[in-house]
Amino acid sequence: MSKGTLRQLLLLTDGCSNSGEDPVAIAALAKEEGVTVNVIGIVNDGEMSEHGITEVEAIAKSGGGISQIVYARQLSQTVQMVTRKAMTQTIHGVVNREIAQILGEEKEMEDLEPEKRGQLMEVVDELGETLDLEVFILVDTSASMKNKLPMVQEALVDLSVSLRSRTGNNEFALYSFPGKRSDIEKLISWTPHFDSLAGAFKKMSTSGVTPTGPAIQEALRFIRNRMKKRGTDEDERFDLEEAGM
């Protein structure tokens, strides 16, 4: 298998969307386009509503990714774990699809005897280590997030430390929502690592609306454009896009 790219959208939020399209639907669209959506819900003291938690889980589920609710201070370890776990899961999904093609419908890794499963897992691990990864990070900066942003900043630098240790290449982009004029606002454009995010969140206006759906929509547009631009000079890619991930 030739080297390919895994694409993830990582959403960090502390509550419910209250404006625009349904984020769960947009996440489903992302999955169709080969972008995995992971969501981390950040709480302070169990302040997140039942509704908010349900939405966080629903977005990740329909986006083919992983969700986790955490306290702000546990954020660092969670962010890197969710990202890695989602990578493995995505690759696992592709491998399962291949198995289904070879062994017939309804067969997947779990239906193999443990010995064969072990050999496949070696491949999954290997790919997780060597594939390129692009993470589009979308941070909710509505008013209630303000005191959590330093923790978010730290967690993202930590994520960069973790992913840099992989063999494959990484690219990150950092956007916040809601933006001043548009749905999302660029904080840092595609970069191989975050050295320091000091000041990254400084110039943001914190507002009361949380347009999660439109924000994911807009993020997808950026990811799509980038894929197009890259697609022309790299024709051989790991076909996650068509894998129905």
Partner: peptide, 10 residues
Amino acid sequence: MKMRDSISKK
């Protein structure tokens, strides 16, 4: 792909 488990409600 089946979503096996979101970590929060494993």
